[in-house]
Design a protein around this nucleic acid. Structure first.
Lengths: 243, 243
DNA sequence: CGTGGGGTTGATTCTTATCAATTCGGGTGG
DNA sequence: CCACCCGAATTGATAAGAATCAACCCCACG
């Protein structure tokens, strides 16, 4: 996705919601002007640490996790290029979750205060930040339902479909840079059970999977059993102000 | 809570984040100028319906739910006076969830567009709306962890503590206007298991419960077993702009 | 060649769901 | 005042789903 965007992921992300003028584009681009590189499977910000910065993700995958006292871990978000890490932590002065990379990552940290400046200088971008936060919530809602109400097979199928849709690939193959332990921590399943569940999906002829390589054989079948509703990923609202 | 606030719940809610000036207070109050009454256990807005309005909740309890194709239901939020219903749906033109009352409710519907007007006229309220949306997300995160990673006993204990903290009562008694089926739909448990789990908490001397009446006997014990972290409910950030 | 991380598979246990029966308490109508 | 009814909570018995524990395989990488 990012590779097709020499320009700016975040601008691309925001322009899904509204046409941006040059001033707005420049403000957003400024958020990406000082990119840093991170290796795969490394922390970017730790749980409980001082939360003074966000990150814009330019390439690679990252996630937010929370570790409980007994060592159990829950993955809270999977981030793809163009997303902003840490937005929801803005109302706290310490990180409630850890941010870590899944792959090699290029990301650009920027201080919270920068957001205020943007809000000051481009009121309409405020609307868009609001929309984006709201859209993230919808994804969280879907996660609650997935974890709370669906069986392991349904959960995994739903996750695969969700990632395919979010990656916006038109082929039926993609790479999921997560081992089965992390997938389990995302879906609240044990890694062993993730393995068995993949086998079920393979046996039913719905997909092929090999390490991180996913080959979807029957997308409709996956959607069918997972009860996937793609509405929550698309934004249809025309609420934001016009230029 | 609302009874001690003849004034305006929503103003009270927002002033937790920053001191409001008169102009801002008036804008917020305008959101509550046309209250309507709803009976207990009634829908306020249906799933899939046109989403053109929000509600400010002035008194009573409400919730957001989602019903799956197979009839399973998941409660997504519990709303208390001062909260705004539907904020996260702003990026969609149809409701992703149903809003319904748990008790008798006084709520005030207002059109989406009103939010834009507020954003125009009081930039700092924008910050606060943003903070509030972010804080809601933190509560959702906690729900994901609760459902995904905690046992039934831990889950219920956590829920009880959360509601006590949110209600902000200083006594150890309060009323939970939810039957065990709804509590189950909130915690992703069957109603039967909610009943058993209440029994465990009672047997351990942590609380007494009778219908909706909760009497907490050992708050520290409940916090202990649930791994409750009250940070996520308090806002510590000084991010919002000053007046 | 070893070594180690990840994946797979089998056996067993644990937690929670499901189904069914019973109780309790609050209305309602005779 | 009493018989009845109904929704909710409780309790018991059983079943299903997922976790856990353990062994083993595969393969990339030193």
């Amino acid at each position: 996705m990012s590779s097709t965007l020499p320009d700016s992921c975040i601008v691309h992300q925001f322009s899904k919601f509204a046409d941006l003028n040059e001033h707005e584009i420049n403000l957003l681009k400024a958020l990406e002007k000082d990119p840093r590189s991170y290796e795969a499977d490394q922390p970017m910000a730790i749980e409980g640490g001082k939360a003074e910065r966000f990150f814009t993700l330019q390439s690679g995958w990252a996630c937010a996790t929370r570790t409980l006292a007994d060592g159990q871990r829950q993955v809270l978000d999977i981030f793809l290029p163009g997303q902003i890490l840490g937005l929801r932590e803005i109302s706290f002065d310490r990180n409630l979750s850890e941010f870590r990379t899944l792959t090699e990552v290029k990301a650009c940290p920027f201080p919270r205060q920068r957001l205020t400046e943007i809000f000051d200088q481009a009121p309409r971008l405020t609307d868009l930040f609001f929309l984006i936060l709201a859209r993230e919530q919808s994804m969280l809602i879907e996660r609650v339902i997935n974890i709370g109400r669906r069986s392991a097979v349904e959960r995994l199928a739903h996750f695969i479909v969700e990632m395919k849709v979010r990656l916006n690939v038109d082929t039926d193959k993609f790479v999921l840079p997560m081992n089965q332990t992390i997938i389990g921590d995302t879906l609240s399943l044990s890694s062993v059970h993730v393995s068995r569940t993949f086998k079920v999906l393979r046996d039913q002829g719905l997909l092929e999977s090999n390490n991180g390589d996913i080959h979807i054989l029957d997308l409709d079948g996956l959607i069918e059993i997972s009860g996937f509703d793609r509405n929550y990923l698309d934004s249809h609202s025309n609420w934001a102000r016009q230029d």
